[in-house]
């Protein structure tokens, strides 16, 4: 009887440790990338938590110090669907960090939405993670001569709303 109890105990212990390992391994490659550089002094890090986004969702564009209300509204409209924003940026060897980030991102996990390359050599790549045709995460990798930036937007992102914001920005530039 003691043997049986011991066997069951060992089985349950191994099961729980397997569960813990599975839980840890489900963190995506991009989470590991952030974890690698978040404490690195060469990087600037910004994080907007789900709580802050909830607060933004309740804010009125007039309360915010914005010259153009329609642009602020477009930003707030997008922000209310977001649940997290993480930004990493560095001016130290941007080219090397850009290449490393691209190599570490799992192409099975993320799909390339768009790559934009300037004649000046600036590269911007958009990657998305979709579930049932809804964008759940958008990654922006940007490399210029003097800066590398990685942004991760988590939440339900609507490309139409982003396009609306682009139009508002353009309108503002025309004025």
């Amino acid at each position: 009887m003691k043997k049986i109890t011991l066997l069951l105990g060992l089985f349950l212990a191994s099961l729980s440790s397997t569960m813990a390992q599975t839980g840890n391994s489900s963190a995506s490659a991009i989470d590991k990338y952030f974890a690698n550089y978040v404490e690195d002094k060469r990087f600037s890090v910004v994080y907007i938590s789900p709580k802050l986004f909830q607060m933004l969702g309740r804010m009125d564009s007039k309360i915010l110090d914005m010259d153009d209300d329609s642009e602020a509204k477009a930003v707030l409209d997008l922000a209310k669907d977001l649940q997290g924003l993480r930004i990493l940026s560095t001016d130290d060897t941007p080219d090397a960090f850009y290449k490393e980030a691209k190599a570490k991102i799992n192409t099975k996990e993320y799909e390339v939405l768009m790559t934009v390359r300037d004649k000046d050599g600036d590269n911007v790549e958009f990657l998305i993670k979709e579930t049932n045709n809804v964008i759940q995460e958008l990654l922006l990798l940007s490399k210029g001569d003097d800066e590398f930036t990685l942004m991760s937007f988590v939440g339900n992102l609507d490309l139409n709303k982003i396009s609306r914001l682009a139009k508002e920005i353009e309108k503002k530039n025309d004025d």
Binding site: I48, L85, L140, A166
Partner: peptide, 27 residues
Amino acid sequence: YEPKTPEEAFKITHKALKKVAVELDKG
């Protein structure tokens, strides 16, 4: 790494979303 006020958070989000919108529009 969190901004201290919602206003600051809004400025950062605005800047980040602006970059996304401008680059997507450019592409």
